[in-house]
Write a protein that binds this DNA or RNA. Structure first.
Lengths: 242, 242
DNA sequence: AAGTGGTCTAGACCACCAC
DNA sequence: TGGTGGTCTAGACCACTTG
């Protein structure tokens, strides 16, 4: 029950455990997607308890160096995917060009009505018809984001009928001759909470990046509003202007 | 010592505590920058221990709803600052226009040499002369970011002599006739670690957003490379293209 | 000096996953 | 079925900040 004196200088124990693990990762002893030893084993080998070990692991997770998968354990994070949200965009092409393997799952397609918050974001009127598409996307078998896409059925009649497990941007261009323009992007870091956390198979509270994008066509007609929930350690945003 | 049965359904206790606090914040019972009751008081009033209470607080912190200040307590987060990193930029003007109060402190100005990682980012050669400027910026008295700015002394001779507690962009325009162009922006969420965490008065491991920006002038000459470390709950990025 | 958050112990039971 | 992470208890001492 007694808390021990701090031993080595003033650095907290959990940060010293963190440093040791970080060094092993940097030295390449633990390659990307390798599983770490179990929390109990780590605790014992560092002469401490699980609580302190978990503090160290949480640090590394916050830095984006490791991630957890269900209750299977802790794994070394692979490099971040480079992502430019201002470009017309094929997730699949982008992932492939970085030597990784993409996958997309359509979770849901619904015809619904514009809610007040969405009216704010899109300029549509509350109650207007809208098509909602929900997808999950993976890189090398790990889910990295879920997205809700709101499509304007006036500009995209019959959009519900298509296969959404491919590039939406290509679909819009080929079937509707839409060249997306005038993108307005908003993003901020936040924790992933429940519908998204569950879809990604992570605990509520896992760090994420929330990205939204509104696009219209060359005539200024609203085409789509996209809302993406990324795991925070999986991407690096890159934008070029002028 | 015994762990108790879960009582109310399957929602973990720390998430129920989180929900209660979140409701109080949303209902306006706890205004922005208000201090929460102490961890011990919260623990007792929810019939649990500090460890569990801290889990709940960490959740709210990850969501950007509360923040901590030194060892003074937990506070309700004010609204995020809207920030467009692609624009020529006066922090002061931007903060003021959002009804908040800005402050800037220059922490350090050094003439130094380009290191390998910086050569990569800027296109300069390793060993080239460079001026390094380090600043901390506050909103309503709370530090929200620290930044390292690397300035090209060839394009900006005598730059060290100026006062950096004002807008750098305005300085460049007025004194050097620089119109910044060709910005390349990169950003990703990550934890803030030591020099930055300390400068911001937060614990190592606090969630942050890392933003870099490289700019050149109208002739393509490299002007500055900027590296910003933001507290994750303090900003919302907004970009408009085309 | 009193109170705050920061760190830490040494256990426990549970839910879920892989074998 | 055994091992994993997820949750939780009931304490303790420490470092720092505040009156």
């Amino acid at each position: 029950m007694e808390a021990r004196a701090n031993g080595e200088g003033s650095t907290p124990l959990y940060l010293r455990v963190r440093d040791q693990l970080a060094n092993q990762i940097e030295a390449g002893l633990l390659a990307a997607n390798t599983r770490l030893p179990s929390e109990r084993v780590l605790a014992e080998s560092h002469g401490t308890t699980r609580v302190t070990t978990r503090l160290a692991l949480a640090q590394l997770e916050a830095e984006g160096r490791i991630y957890r998968s269900n209750r299977r354990g802790w794994f070394v994070s692979p490099p971040r995917l480079v992502y430019n949200p201002t470009q017309d965009y094929s997730f699949s092409d982008n992932v492939t060009s970085q030597g990784r393997t993409p996958a997309t799952e359509t979770l849901e397609v619904t015809a619904t009505e514009v809610a007040p918050w969405l009216a704010n974001k899109t300029g549509l009127a509350v109650g207007d018809a809208i098509v909602r598409l929900r997808r999950r996307r993976q890189v090398d078998g790990r889910p990295v984001l879920v997205e809700n896409i709101y499509l304007n059925p006036k500009r995209l009649p019959g959009i519900e009928q298509y296969d959404f497990n491919r590039s939406l941007w290509k679909l819009l261009r080929e079937k509707y001759s839409v060249e997306l323009q005038g993108k307005r992007i908003e993003m901020f870091p936040t924790a992933l909470v429940d519908p998204q956390a569950e879809a990604l198979g992570v605990n509520a509270g896992t760090a994420g990046l929330y990205v939204t994008r509104r696009s219209h066509d060359a005539d200024g007609v609203f085409v789509e509003f996209d809302e993406e929930f990324w795991l925070h350690d999986t991407l690096s945003i890159q934008v070029e202007v002028q």
